[in-house]
């Protein structure tokens, strides 16, 4: 029992890494996750539009992309992008691995965001598109001003869930060999553990992840509940009863 506590909960070991975790790791983890998530949202929205298009030329490549990046293990995609691209002399981000790390996580995130957006947009009543078009708005104008804002609102919980996964997946970029200053939470803990043969640093990093992911999880649940209740109370009102079906 003592060995267990010593291995995982050695306060001294934890205190040794906490400053680095908080000043360097947290910052870099959030940098990778937030940037990747934003990029993923943008690419994902474009992909969703392509998936919803009637044109085979737009739909097929998007479908292919989504199926591939959702189907591969994240660690494989990150290796392909972060180790593969520079090795093939494709170096949009020079030698710094952090750019490749962001890109890799973003490419994965985009595939999931595309499906989330697609389902959100498809959940919007067809009458909304008809109303927009009947006023003379183009397909894209109606999408941008009417359908997408409603669709996105319906999938905010799912998108936040995806962001939680982005945070966790950012740990996989450790295999790109980050240098001091670029290290994210896991990498710092991993290095410390390799030195001390003690897992308390990993537990410390875990606590940092949980501080971000657990509140977000509760936010998602609350959000989801509110959206659900909002929809239900609308249904009960006679005025909108039929427009909701």
């Amino acid at each position: 029992m003592d060995a267990f506590i010593h291995t995982f909960f050695d306060i001294g070991e934890m205190l040794k890494v906490f400053p680095t975790l908080l000043t360097e790791g947290l910052k870099n983890t959030l940098f990778i996750a937030v940037l990747a998530a934003l990029l993923g949202l943008v690419i994902g929205m474009v992909l969703a539009m392509m998936l919803l298009s009637r044109s085979w030329f737009l739909k097929f490549p998007a479908r292919l992309y989504v199926d591939i990046f959702r189907g591969l293990p994240a660690i494989l995609t990150i290796s392909l992008v972060g180790l593969g691209l520079p090795a093939a002399d494709i170096r949009p981000f020079g030698r710094s691995p952090i750019g490749y790390a962001v890109l890799a996580v973003a490419l994965i995130s985009a595939a999931y965001c595309a499906e989330i957006f697609r389902s959100g947009i498809q959940s919007v009543n067809d009458g909304q598109m008809q109303a927009g078009r009947s006023l003379g708005m183009t397909y894209l104008q109606t999408m941008r001003k009417i359908v997408v804002p409603q669709g996105v609102r319906n999938v905010l919980p799912a998108l936040t869930n995806r962001f939680i996964i982005d945070i966790k997946e950012s740990s996989l970029v450790y295999l790109l060999g980050l240098t001091v200053g670029q290290r994210e939470l896991y990498f710092i803990a991993h290095q410390q553990q390799a030195i001390s043969y003690n897992s308390s640093a990993l537990v410390a990093a875990g606590i940092c992840y949980l501080m971000m992911t657990v509140p977000l999880t509760y936010l998602v649940n609350a959000w989801d509940r509110r959206l659900r209740e909002g929809r239900r109370s609308l249904k009960l009102k006679p005025a909108t009863r039929l427009s909701e079906v």
Binding site: N125, G127, Q128, Q130, S134, L135, G136, M137, Q150, L242
Partner: peptide
């Protein structure tokens, strides 16, 4: 077609107002 549609108003059974 878009221009022509803007000269034809349409009212739907379920109103189809923009809820957002």
């Amino acid at each position: 077609v878009n221009k022509a549609r803007s000269t034809v108003g349409m009212v739907f059974q379920h109103f189809n107002l923009f809820p957002h």
